[in-house]
Every structure is written in C-alpha cells, then in structure tokens.
Design a protein around this nucleic acid. Sequence first.
DNA 1: ACTTTGTGAAACCATTTGGTTGTACGTTAG
DNA 2: CTAACGTACAACCAAATGGTTTCACAAAGT
Lengths: 113, 113
Amino acid sequence: MVSQSELSDVEIDRIFQALAASTRRDILRRTLVAEQSVSELAAEYDMSFAAVQKHVAVLEAARLIVKRAVGRERLVSANPEVIARAQALLARYEELWRARVDQLDALLAEPDN
Amino acid sequence: MVSQSELSDVEIDRIFQALAASTRRDILRRTLVAEQSVSELAAEYDMSFAAVQKHVAVLEAARLIVKRAVGRERLVSANPEVIARAQALLARYEELWRARVDQLDALLAEPDN
DNA sequence: ACTTTGTGAAACCATTTGGTTGTACGTTAG
DNA sequence: CTAACGTACAACCAAATGGTTTCACAAAGT
C-alpha cells in the first residue's frame, strides 16, 4: 500500500499543468521506460540544456518524476504513482457522466410518462 | 463507435492545459452531471462573468465541453469522449511503466546471474 | 416600445511560462 | 593539478494566462 493522502487542488493543478506540454510528456515517457540523466534527456531536444532542465523541474514539482544523485549526474525516473492518481481523477469524472446517463435512462424507463 | 482520429500534440496540450485549473475542473464536473447555462455557471464562482466565460471558452477549445444555443442561453455540457481520451493516454503511460517492471523482473529471474 | 437578461468580445493589466545566455560549483578524467 | 563535464541557478525577454472593466447585441419579459 502506498501513501494515499488526498491531492490538493494546487497539486492537481501542477500535475495537469506539467502534462500540458509535449516536451514534458515526452520526458515522462522516456523516464517511464528507463532512468535517464538530465544531460541525456537534454540531448534529445532542440533547445538549451537549461530549458530542458526547467521542464524536468516542472515535472519534479508535480512529483511526476523523481531524481536521484549518482556522482555528478542526476538520474531521472518517472513516478507512476502520480500518473495513476491523475488517471483515477479522470475516471471519477467519467463516473459522474455514467451516473447522469443512468439517471436519464431510469427516467425514460418510468412507466407513467 | 465514435470518431477515433488521433489527437495531435497541440490538442493534448489544450486538454491538459484546460484541466490545470480547479475552476475549470469544477465547471467540467458540474456540466458532467447536468447541462448548465453560462450564467448559471458564472453564479457559482467568485469572479466576473467574463472570467467564467473565458474558462468555458478554454474548455470548449479543448473540446472538453460543448455548447448548444437555446434562445439567448448557451447550454454547456461536458464531452466525456475527450475525457476518456485523456484517461487512455495516461493509461498508456502506466503501461510503459509496467513493461519496464516486467523487463526488470525477467532480468532478475534469469538463472545465469 | 422599452428594459432586462444572457452572451460575446475587446482592451487592458499583472503574473506566469518557456525560452535564452551567463555564471558558479562539485565531480570525474587526463 | 587542471580541464572537462553535469548540474543548478540567476537575470532577462517575449508570449501566454487569468483576471478586470467596458461595450455591443440579440432574445425575453413587462
């Protein structure tokens, strides 16, 4: 079992904000597959090292990734836990929708209409 | 079956960007449960009508909601289709993670280690 | 006919975002 | 020891964001 403290609004803001840029989604994808140093990541994109580092920082603030120090390198790996939380959030939205549809169905099934 | 054209990066950007503000998530929640006019929505928040209208516009640009005109009102309702797409995206990320874990498991299960 | 209501859009402003370059500093390599 | 590498951070800038107020206009109510 993992820590199941509820996510605050600002935390959710940060998660979706972090996901709202394709470079960051790509970094997330890469680090889900395998741990990578910040330089390795930076080499993949057509922008400065500092820019990539900032993207990594945004993902880290959202706790979508974690870094661990190994010598002078910082190895980045994704945190699937938080991704799962975001997914669960969206799933709850869909549930609201289903409830609405069910309610409508029940109404239509009412005999005295 | 619904239209299954692939989402572009910018479309995905817009979806997550739209989800990255709690007011907009709240609007989405309300309109998932029941159709609401823009004024009805605006009445719920401590900001100007124009501000809420802008939030609605952001959600609409992301196609997370749709509007239909009834007289002078614009009735807003959520589009669960797009929410499902976002959820599916996150699910694929989790799948990448699982593949990584499986690969690691296989490696550890190797007899000649 | 006039007024009110619901919506949209423009202009404006402060803050945030996403990029840049430059600097500093610890770690590894020669 | 010195040079190169990996990272972090600050300062700066343009563009986007999130709010405001104001104006315009069509639809509904009186």
